[in-house]
Design a protein around this nucleic acid. Structure first.
Lengths: 225, 225, 225, 225
DNA sequence: CATGAATGAGGTTTCATTCAT
DNA sequence: AATGAATGAAACCTCATTCAT
């Protein structure tokens, strides 16, 4: 709605201030919502965190609900971009499919277990019934964009004969489930840090299982049992 | 854990009513917390739902926080019992391991996707940072009792040569992850009902993958690829 | 609507407190609304005036709007009762109709120009568009009860041959108009006190005109012209 | 509604635009104040209605209070001019005094019951205590200019022997009271429209009574009683 | 023990008003 | 002269919690 061009072309800085302030408010909002939860967070605290007066918050984002929505949206976009970038790495594996999967798995898990990511999950879970539209925003559409992207890559690997699977979407879902499911318990819902070493092991286990289910050659876990 | 003894000693009428009332309050509390979230729920609404006066709630459970804790605890116990009962069915598979796994999977998924179960998950997620002790209560200890029980069963199956796995706990984690992970998206965080048919398919897919990874004979998916 | 009997019969004073508090709140509300106007008045001030805490006001009368309505209603009832009592005096005039009319006129004007009455008028006027139902409450129904009562009395006087009029309702309206109309200017909308002497003169003038229009014998203004 | 004329008519830019803008603001202010009441009206809405920015309003009229005063003043002048014009018609009645009085009465009632006039009355009533000086502004001085003008005309009619009255000011007051008093109830304080036919009847009744009280010949209501 | 009534604290939101441009 | 943006103050209302009954 605003004009990024104005400030880009001319050197004027008026709109910059506007944009910066809105950005600051959204970031502050996410911080506070993440810390306190939606209902507990108070706009006053958000304003303070953003370094502006309360009415300024209401000027930029009409409602507490709206503020929440936009803060979630902004945070989601960042997270989504990171996830998609990671999935983008799953490509043309020279030779070592397992290594590539582990690389991608590790990085996905890293994204997944960042504080922001957990905060996002907690907020979405908490407010799923009161903000049902947020689900689509966070997932990037009616279907999870990350899963979709992953499914695309898996499909190509299947075409190349590197994987053996009928339903790439399902395989993608399962890969992510194997990867992230166990983290929920380990991190106590993101409440405690999981040592990097443990995360690595979880990834390896997930990739093991995934490859045993969908891999074409049993080149892997040499030492399995 | 509660004072069953009190009523046992004295014979008259009172304590039954006491216990019933406490029970009613806890159930009402869970209902309201599930509907509104912790911060949004107000004690007045809980008292109304339970059909008692507000101070009565405070008489039985000192705090809003305490009320929450106990309501969650009660709901957890019910859910836990159901889950454990289901896992208990995974035993001495006459011959068809796949069938038994699917049966258990279907039932677990059914528990998992009940309204109460989702409400519980949402509340736990939402308040994980503010009520960290609830995690242990819900999980039944520092380690998830359901996963543990499942691991026990898987271990015995491995001993019987029906499964090929090194780490039963990990396999149990992964089985549950394969089963429940995809449900999160499908049900939109428990917000929408997933058709029974789809749930069946998810179970089948999970069991497929699980057996391909950990099964000993390829008795299954005849039509796979 | 409330139980006056409870407190009357038994000596218990519980309900008394309730009633007294509600009454106190309504009176305080009228005082503050009269002083500040509806929009300007703040519930905090009303609570302070009533000597209770703010939530107590909300406990007894749910809304600011509701509070307003009931405060106006209570004040109206008082005023209405006084007016009707005055009109009730206009009866069976032994011989001096003029004297009786002047007596009634003086007393009506006295009611009309009390502080409460003016406050009521100002509030009704001010909020007529936002609280259209208040008009009926204040007037005592779709038609003004005071005018009606007056019309009844005038009709009987007409039947007795003491007045000559076709439409008693119209005559009543006009009597009141002649009486109160000029007061609006004189008192500057109730803002300033009109000397009792002047009020007397206004009444006399109104009765003069009324009797010249509707009187049967010209017993009156001997010195007219 | 906006100022197409500004730049078109006058050649350069300055004074025309200023005046027009001020005028637009005052009109917008009256519109909004009339709709919302003084305390409820917000300057933002007025600015929007006038099509200018909020600070512009403050540039032209320093305060909300000042804005109110000037808006009321402007509206009053219009209304006053209309009223005076109507009273001006009450002159040198060729022969039919009743017809002239009815004509004037009808027209006065028409002015009196216009939306603007009622809005003005409501605002004056509502804010009489907080803006006592407005009373003089609206009335056109310490004494009501319309009543005065009417009194002048009545005095001349009395001199001409067409009316029989001692105190023209009082007669004027009473004429207006008879005319407008009943309208208050009928229109529910200007809240509902009174049919033109009914207004006509009210005028006739007022003139009847007035002439019976102050007329010299009983030429009128042939059918009276 | 259960309850009606009361309250202190705090939350969201709006508004009149002022800078800096 | 006109405006977009910002703010201090304050209003309505709700809630968790406690007395007296």
């Amino acid at each position: 709605m605003t004009e990024a061009s104005t400030s880009a072309a001319s050197g004027r800085k008026a709109p910059r201030g506007r944009i910066d302030k809105r950005q600051a408010i959204l970031e502050a909002a996410f911080t506070v919502f993440a810390r306190e939860g939606y209902a507990n967070a108070c706009v006053k605290a958000i304003a303070a965190e953003a370094g502006v007066a309360k009415p300024t918050v209401y000027n930029h984002l009409s409602d507490k609900a709206n503020l929440f929505r936009h803060a979630i949206e902004a945070a989601s976009e960042t997270a989504m971009a990171q996830n998609l970038a990671v999935v983008g790495r799953l490509t043309a594996p020279g030779d070592d499919l397992r290594a590539v999967l582990e690389d991608v798995g590790d990085r996905l898990l890293l994204c997944y277990s960042s504080d922001e990511s957990w905060a996002l999950r907690r907020l979405i879970y908490a407010e799923a019934t009161r903000f049902p539209d947020l689900l689509d925003i966070v997932r990037g559409g009616r279907t999870n964009r990350v899963t979709e992207a992953l499914a695309d890559r898996l499909a190509r690997l299947a075409l190349d004969g590197r994987l053996r699977l009928r339903d790439p979407a399902q395989a993608a879902e399962q890969f992510i489930a194997l990867l992230t499911g166990p983290m929920e318990e380990r991190s106590r819902f993101g409440t405690e840090q999981v040592p990097a070493e443990d995360q690595r092991l979880l990834t390896r286990a997930a990739v093991d299982t995934f490859l045993q289910a969908f891999g074409t050659r049993a080149a892997e876990p040499v030492d399995s049992l």
